[in-house]
Amino acid sequence: MSSRSGTVFLLAAALAASACDKQTPAGEQANVAGASNASPDEVSPDGAVGSKSAASVAGKIDRTHQGEAAPSVTFFDAAGKKTSLADFRGKPVLLNLWATWCAPCIKEMPSLNAAAAIAGDKVHVLAVSQDMQREKVAPFFAEQRLTRLVPYGDPELGLSLAYKANLPMTIMLDANGRELWRVSGARDWADAESTALIAAS
């Protein structure tokens, strides 16, 4: 077993053990990184464990990674072709990492869809599913009528690993692929504050 496939296998096991259920309150997060034995409420936005509760940081803007380059990992577009964040340079990118099994992710998805409509062609809004079964994503989008979002998939969890993500996680990148800010946990992406943040990017 290669180290890559071994990592994905271990990550899948961690997901199965710690995945958030449909009843989890929106303020909690699913621990996708699986890098420690910490529970989701022990992970702070900078990845440190045990310093703050998830409830105290969920939905807050975190600029501690500002200026970092986007990871070069690939994921799949709606047609099943590989793409990467580099393919979207030239415009700011609002990258959302989510999954169909994550209740906070599902809760914020309609507002992300609305944010995509508000941003229009000025910002790429990418909702990249971290489901290991890509075929679940398009039917979910159709059922939820998320018409402004494209069903991207990252079944090998490359973005989650690169960002040490607790789902949902949203990262704002500038037109050159450099991080501006990120948010761990659900947020209303169509409210006035979020709309202004996205527009200013």
Rank of each mutant, 00 (worst) to 15 (best):
S2M: 06
S3T: 08
L11Y: 13
A12G: 15
A13E: 13
A13G: 10
A14H: 14
L15N: 08
A16N: 13
A16F: 13
S18A: 13
S18D: 10
A19Y: 05
D21T: 14
A26M: 06
E28S: 12
A30F: 05
N31H: 09
A33N: 06
A35K: 13
P40N: 03
P40T: 01
D41P: 07
D41N: 15
D41H: 08
S44W: 14
P45E: 00
D46I: 09
V49R: 06
V49L: 09
G50H: 06
G50C: 02
K52H: 08
S53W: 03
S53M: 00
S56E: 14
G59S: 00
K60H: 12
I61E: 09
I61G: 02
R63D: 11
T64C: 01
H65K: 15
H65E: 15
H65S: 15
G67H: 05
A69P: 08
A70N: 03
A70S: 10
P71N: 05
V73N: 05
T74P: 02
D77L: 05
A78F: 00
A79Q: 14
G80A: 02
K81P: 00
T83D: 10
L85V: 13
R89N: 03
R89Y: 03
P92E: 05
P92L: 07
L97G: 02
A99H: 03
A99K: 02
T100L: 07
A103D: 00
P104Q: 03
C105I: 00
C105R: 03
K107I: 08
K107A: 15
M109Y: 10
S111G: 04
A116D: 01
A117P: 02
I118S: 07
A119H: 08
G120F: 04
A127L: 08
V128C: 07
V128N: 04
Q130S: 10
Q130N: 04
Q130D: 04
D131S: 00
E135F: 05
E135N: 11
K136N: 13
V137I: 11
F140T: 09
F141A: 05
E143F: 05
Q144D: 08
Y152N: 08
D154V: 03
L157M: 10
L157R: 08
L159D: 06
L161F: 12
Y163L: 13
K164R: 14
N166A: 09
T170E: 04
T170N: 02
I171S: 11
A175S: 14
G177Y: 01
R178H: 15
E179R: 13
R182N: 08
V183I: 13
G185M: 01
D188L: 04
D188W: 03
D191P: 01
S194N: 11
A196T: 13
A196G: 10
A200F: 00
A200W: 01
